[in-house]
Design a protein around this nucleic acid. Sequence first.
DNA 1: ATGGCTTGAGTGTCAAGA
Length: 254
Amino acid sequence: MKIATWNVNSLKVRLPHVLDWLAATQVDVLCLQETKTEDKAFPYAELAAAGYGAVHDGQKTYNGVAIVARGDVSAVHCGIPGFADEQKRLIAATVGGVRMVCAYIPNGQAVGSEKYEYKLCWLKALAGWLREEMVRYPKLVLMGDYNIAPEDRDVHDPVAWKDQILCSEPERMAFRGLLELGLSDAFRLFEQPEKSFSWWDYRQMGFRLNRGLRIDHILLSPGLTSLCRSCSIDKAPRKLERPSDHAPVVAELA
DNA sequence: ATGGCTTGAGTGTCAAGA
């Protein structure tokens, strides 16, 4: 089974890229973040024509998450149980016997800001819920836009980014907290090129100069880690006209 | 340079992203 995560930064704008990419890669499950659309405008028909079902939890303008998949999608759940949140940032569903959790973790804006506190609270609630969810579902994958670069090697300029948003120690501690639940970073199970990133700023030729961060991740429960055969970042869609600022991350499970 | 792009809202120009 081939699984992937992609922050598309508006599904309305990026739908042609998504459809082309699905056809080219033949992934079985694709988690989307920042659809920026309400459910009634979600392109269910276009995806169905391509052979994919979908579940979506969205809102106008901001956020919005979806799981696009071939085959049966069951036991759909939106949001973190017990954590009241207006923002549509998490959707979970079971596909092919695997629990797929698609998350758009808050950006945090600036260290010390109100949004930063919200981000840390959100991560704490996520970890608390996942601890139980992993018992219920031994085969679980958490994928999405984490808005955290876990280590300095995930940052093009670690000195400039030191203690900045996406790289601060409390954010990295929260990421390690997820690993301590038993989750593994699929990307780091394999040898990878140096300076591998999943997001590049639109400004200042960020992509051409490879000034990026690795903030999109696929984390696997122990029951899936042993089945993971590969994990990579596909930079091809980032090179297209009017790209998302994020590239998809793909993993293959036996 | 709290800037530099891009998106959605909505028709002015701003909020938000990362």
